[in-house]
């Protein structure tokens, strides 16, 4: 157990940088006065931290909106392209200063790809199950952000986080258990702190906070949560991206039953998910 772990994480979250993978693209898109809303939506939606920051802003007390906004498309329509551009620009510049060194234990590219894969897969699963396409954006956001709690652990407690990853490897336990043992806090807890700081209540916040303890979940967003859990499983079985967890726990059958899916779905969606990730990679020039 680390002294003041939560305090340190809390301080970090207050000024949390975004992932640098997309920085160059964000700068290019946002500095271009001819950027279209579609381009802006595209570049931001590929970056979990930026999506979070934009949603955080629009849901903040600053605007005092009566209703929770959970989609970037709506945020752009409501706030206007200029405000969202400025927001993305400023946070891209800010994060560029600090974030490479924040990725010590975790591989940044691997983390990014894992997050994107879970987001895309959750959305593809939802579409496959006939979920209304107006709602699928939230499945994507929930998947994209589900592991965001790893960023402060990795940045603030980096030495201990290296240790947690090696304990997870050596003892063949899921990373979140090793985090709990070594750090006294796991990424669902630190993720919940981010969700609360960024006001990501609802499905996105619940997916962040409960994606490992999903069997105990009794909230109203079980459909999205279970889709993210399954998408997470998909990412790990297919080996798309890597966010430090070599030994994820076995998936409970209840997930398959609840979503009315069987294992063949993984093969069915693999190609579409890979295509979506390839599109994103081309767009972001991630090698």
């Amino acid at each position: 157990m680390i002294d003041n772990a939560e305090k340190k994480i809390d301080a970090y979250i207050k000024n949390m940088p975004s992932l640098p993978t997309t920085v160059a693209k964000v700068l290019e898109v946002c500095n271009n006065p001819r950027t279209s809303p579609a381009d802006l939506n595209h570049v931001i939606s590929l970056d979990p931290v930026l999506v979070g920051r934009v949603l955080k802003l629009i849901n903040s007390a600053y605007y005092g909106l009566g209703q929770q906004v959970t989609s970037l498309v709506r945020a752009i329509i409501m706030l206007g392209i200029n405000t969202v551009k400025n927001l993305a620009l400023s946070s891209a510049v800010l994060r560029n200063l600090s974030s490479r060194k924040d990725f010590q234990a975790l591989d940044m590219e691997g983390f990014w790809r894992h997050s994107l894969c879970v987001g895309v897969a959750a959305k593809v699963l939802a579409k496959h199950r006939g979920i209304d396409s107006k709602l699928t954006e939230e499945y994507f956001t929930a998947g994209l952000l589900h592991d965001i709690g790893k960023i402060p652990l990795n940045a603030v407690l980096s030495k201990e986080y290296v240790m947690a990853i090696s304990v997870s490897d050596r003892e063949r336990i899921s990373l979140h258990r090793a985090e709990g043992q070594i750090l006294g806090i796991d990424h669902t807890k630190s993720g919940a702190m981010i969700a609360s700081a960024w006001k990501l209540e609802g499905a996105v916040g619940d997916a962040i906070a409960h994606h490992h303890a999903y069997m105990e979940y009794e909230g109203p967003f079980k459909d999205i949560l279970f889709s993210v859990v399954l998408a997470n499983r998909f990412a790990s079985i297919m080996g798309i991206g890597f966010s430090g967890n070599r030994y994820p726990e076995k998936l409970d059958n209840a997930v398959w039953e609840f979503l009315k899916l069987d294992r063949s779905i993984f093969d069915e969606i693999e190609q579409v998910v890979n295509q979506e990730i390839e599109k994103a990679k081309v767009f972001l020039r991630v090698e």
């Binding site: 279209s36 809303p37 579609a38 381009d39 939506n41 595209h42 989609s71 498309v73 709506r74 752009i76 329509i77 409501m78 392209i81 396409s133 107006k134 699928t136 954006e137």
Partner: peptide, 30 residues
């Protein structure tokens, strides 16, 4: 008036079905 700022023409290079639909809905609701 609020309007959908996302392309709704599938031939448009920036077209994204979900963004187009969500954009229509958001503009109408606003």
């Amino acid at each position: 008036p609020f309007r959908n700022v996302f392309p709704t023409d599938p031939q448009d290079p920036g077209y994204d079905e979900d963004a187009a639909k969500e954009g229509e809905l958001a503009a109408r609701e606003e």
